[in-house]
Amino acid sequence: MDAVKALWDVAAPRLWQALITGWLLATLCFAFTHALPGDVALRVAAARIGDDRVTAEAADRIRQEEGLGLPVLDQYGAWMMRLVKGDLGRSLVSGKPVLAEIIDHGRYTLMLGTIGWLLSYLLALPIGFWAGWWPGGAVDRLSMGLAVVLASLPTFLVGIGLISAFALTLHWLPPAGFRTGAHMILPALTLALGLAAYSVRIVRNAVVEVRQAFYLTYARIRGHSATGAFRHHGIRNAAIPIVTFAALQFAYLVDGFVIVETLFNYPGLGDLLVRSLLARDVPVVVGAALLIGWTYAFINLAADLTCLKLDPRRSVRDAA
């Protein structure tokens, strides 16, 4: 029971925060998209039938049909009423339900994000661990240098570099698209390199810190080998900052998606967001912001719960 209560104590305030953050984020997006200069109906009409073919008549028809001529507060009220009922509305451009649009694009982003994120830890864990085990060694210094370079390069530049090397020069991989597994590799690697640049240092520092901790020295005094002591007493301690950081990196991922998906013509959420913003497809922009906000809060919650589980001190306290 205590464990459930401890879980609830952590989760409840986070859930409230998530709800309020999501609502605030969506409201801000709603306000900002409406505050942008220009006629929403005209932009929607252009996105529906093309810049060349848009007419004032088409824009007026859309304004009428979609209620875009109503005062902004009325539109906001109507949106809130629908939201309370769990309805995110329909896209002004495609006419499809917003949730269906988000799921359709979200599955691509989820796949790319998961592969990119896993790839980043496949890189960061061994290299960071090695660098932390022998701090000041060649791997530590080399990984530090590479991490600084990669972290200071904007994502699009890393992407362009990879495209130039693997698609345009070596002709190993396609430069853009989504139809096959090969299409995933370059965008996932672009995301992974950006993520790993930071996480490799976090892993390295966590390992260094734990290796210097008194409890490991004590374990060695008790006769454990260096690796045995680390395996038994170090890994869980080192994992706490890494897990927290891994969750924080989700924010970077959202940022990265917008650029990576545009660069690689990958049809995920970032691509949907950019297109919807350009077309002033307010329901999709607001719906996507709401769901991204909630996902972010959910991942933070999951990270907190994982840390709770990992933290030996909390376990001991709960058991007492």
């Binding site: 495209i163 698609a167 345009l168 002709h171 396609p174 430069p175 853009a176 698209g177 545009t262 660069l263 690689f264 013509n265 297109r275």
Partner: peptide
């Protein structure tokens, strides 16, 4: 559909 012109050029250059 590839909206970005430079990306289309990359696809052509890569022979894709």
């Amino acid at each position: 559909a590839v909206v970005n012109g430079e990306t289309r050029a990359n696809i052509a250059a890569a022979g894709d």
